[in-house]
């Protein structure tokens, strides 16, 4: 047990260091496809360093929950990254799929509380929408777990890794990977569900919740969400993408694909997200029955 725990910690550290780079690659892809110069792929590191050095402004309305929320969010992202399968040798034995989902939910719980604690309309709006999206995403997430767990007979993430030989472009594998891709975009506040680039529009969700955070705490939130996105990329590559490629290639491919999808889509109206996620649910249900 202790040995696999050590593997998990090393893995989380590696992912933590790489996470801003992957986010930079997604941004660079978008810039390239829009014929812009774009920021360097290392820009996210500079941003994090900038926020890290700045002080945190806290209003008198808030309580300790406001300060604790970003820390809990970052820590839950790291815990989730520790549970991922497949990067290092060694079977990570505490990575259960349901625990993975609920550990991320713990981070969301605290971020939403933090948004309500600042006593502004923006915070509450972001929190309210975050909960709305998460309610719609959750059935699809559960079915995505069920798809692989009912195939391999375990909910351990390390047991659920896709077997290329058996599922090379079969119907369940393709449907599962497309559906998980849709879920991944919604879970990580990407277009077409949420727009990660805007900071002023009423359309935003995740950015809206974090509006009152500044300085070092903001850097924790950004690092946490970048790590969460990379964790989902790894999960997508390991569990759902039916291609026999090394993990690094898969993650880079996913990053390019996310960039491409983001420039091809507009943000969806908030109440259209229902239909978008219902599509994911139906695809997963068909995949589960078909296998």
């Amino acid at each position: 047990m202790a040995f696999s725990f050590y593997h998990g910690a090393v893995q989380a550290l590696c992912l933590l260091i790489c996470a801003p780079l992957i986010a930079g690659i997604v941004n660079k892809t978008k810039a390239f496809l829009q014929k812009r110069q774009g920021a360097s792929i290392f820009q996210e590191y500079f941003d994090l360093w900038k926020w890290w050095r700045k002080p945190v402004f806290v209003t008198k309305y808030t309580s300790w929950v406001f300060l604790a929320a970003p820390i809990v969010y970052l820590v839950t992202s790291i815990m989730a990254a520790m549970m991922l399968p497949g990067l290092l040798q060694g079977n990570i034995r505490f990575g259960d799929a349901f625990v993975f989902v609920y550990v991320l939910a713990l981070g969301r719980f605290f971020m939403t509380l933090g948004s309500l604690d600042s006593a502004t309309a923006f915070g509450g709006m972001g929190g309210s929408r975050e909960i709305y999206i998460s309610v719609l995403v959750e059935p699809a997430v559960m079915l995505a777990v069920l798809l692989n767990a009912s195939r391999y007979g375990s909910t351990m993430l390390s047991q659920m890794v896709i077997d290329y030989n058996a599922f090379y472009f079969t119907v369940p594998a393709v449907l599962g990977s497309v559906a998980f891709f849709l879920v991944m975009l919604a879970e990580n506040s990407r277009l077409p569900v949420d727009n990660p680039d805007t900071h002023l529009e009423l359309t935003m969700i995740h950015e809206c919740m974090t509006l009152e955070y500044s300085g070092r705490l903001l850097s924790y939130i950004h690092l946490g969400s970048m790590l969460k996105m990379l964790s989902f990329f790894v999960l997508f590559g390991a569990l759902y993408l039916p291609l026999p490629l090394p993990m690094v290639v898969k993650v880079l491919m996913t990053a390019l694909l996310v960039g491409l999808v983001e420039i091809l889509n507009n943000k969806m109206r908030l109440f259209k997200v229902r239909v978008y996620l219902a599509a994911a649910v139906i695809m997963l249900a068909v995949a589960i029955i078909a296998q």
Binding site: Y61, S63, V65, Y102, A105, R108, F109, T112, L113, L116, D117, S118, A119, G127, I131, Y132, S134, V135, V137, E138, P139, A140, V141, M142, L143, V145, L146, V281
Partner: peptide
């Protein structure tokens, strides 16, 4: 699983709302 997933996420929202509105802000 669809219903349990909805239930779990709604429960989270429900108690964020209860706690946030009562004790925070």
């Amino acid at each position: 699983f669809i219903l349990l997933g909805l239930t779990g996420a709604l429960a989270l929202g429900c108690f964020v709302r209860l706690y946030g509105v009562t004790f925070l802000g």
